[in-house]
């Protein structure tokens, strides 16, 4: 086994008096697609946000591609350049066009020229299926289109890892599929992905591993097939009975 691209060791996180993560350890291999599920408040989003330093663990270590996420802002920025993130609320920049949303970070972080970054942006827009929306503003797009732009924006930085934080939870039902299809495409291409989502269809189709979390700890860590057909723990069974 090669060195995992993400190593999480005994991570604790408190929010005031809430103990959100209670000693979580796991790792992700290159090219692996990991899905995190669990009830709200189980710590799955917090764990995801620890991987690109949006949350700082109170104890424990997170190492991404050999770089420890510590207090050094140099390390954090280096990790963030390797890790793309897609949010539940899309978080596109509303004052910029779709094309500018995708080129901004390429130019100021990756130092690409305007022409190079625009070429990459247009390629990615074609890949996520909305090349005609390059000059639209985010508010003029549907939720599903906005989320696909957000995916293209993250991909433009050539990340080694993509994190998805409930990417379809804010979408109308008829738009969920177009986003999941884009994610499936990425998974097939061998992208390392960590996905917080309750889309069991996606988990079955794309995930190599699935982790069920509750109360800040990992309850089960197995394959999707195994989890859906033979959940070991009572809590997992209860949760699955509610969402399936």
């Amino acid at each position: 086994m090669t060195t995992p691209i993400i190593q999480i060791e005994n991570v604790h996180k408190h929010f005031g008096r809430v103990h959100a993560l209670r000693g979580v350890s796991t790792s992700v291999q290159r090219g692996e697609v990991l899905v995190l599920i669990g009830p709200s408040g189980s710590g799955k989003s917090t764990l995801l946000r620890c991987i690109n330093g949006l949350e700082r663990p109170d104890a424990g270590r997170v190492i991404v591609d050999g770089i420890p996420l510590d207090n050094s802002s140099e390390h954090i920025n280096a990790v963030r350049a390797e890790v793309g993130m897609v949010f539940q609320q899309f978080n596109l920049f509303p004052h910029l066009t779709v094309l500018e949303n995708i080129t901004l970070a390429q130019q100021i972080v990756r130092k690409r020229t305007a022409e190079a970054s625009q070429r990459i942006a247009r390629e990615l827009l074609a890949k996520v299926g909305i090349p005609e929306k390059a000059d639209a503003y985010p508010a003029q797009l549907s939720g599903g289109q906005q989320q696909r732009v957000a995916i293209a924006r993250a991909l433009a930085m050539n990340p080694k890892i993509m994190l998805f934080d409930e990417p379809t939870s804010a979408l109308d039902p008829e738009m969920i599929k177009e986003v999941l299809d884009t994610m499936l495409l990425l998974a097939r291409e061998g992208m390392t992905m960590v996905v917080v989502s309750h889309e069991m269809g996606f988990a079955r189709a794309a995930a190599h591993r699935i982790i069920f979390m509750d109360n800040g700890t990992i309850i089960e860590d197995t394959t999707p097939d195994e989890l859906f057909t033979h959940p070991r723990e009572e809590r997992t069974r209860q949760f699955l009975s509610k969402i399936l």
Binding site: M85, F93, I108, A154, M157
Partner: peptide, 18 residues
């Protein structure tokens, strides 16, 4: 400005001032 804007920008590798 919603917090998600800063988070999205930082996630793309921008510094706080950028």
């Amino acid at each position: 400005i919603p917090r998600g804007q800063m988070e999205a920008a930082r996630s793309l590798g921008m510094s706080y001032l950028q």
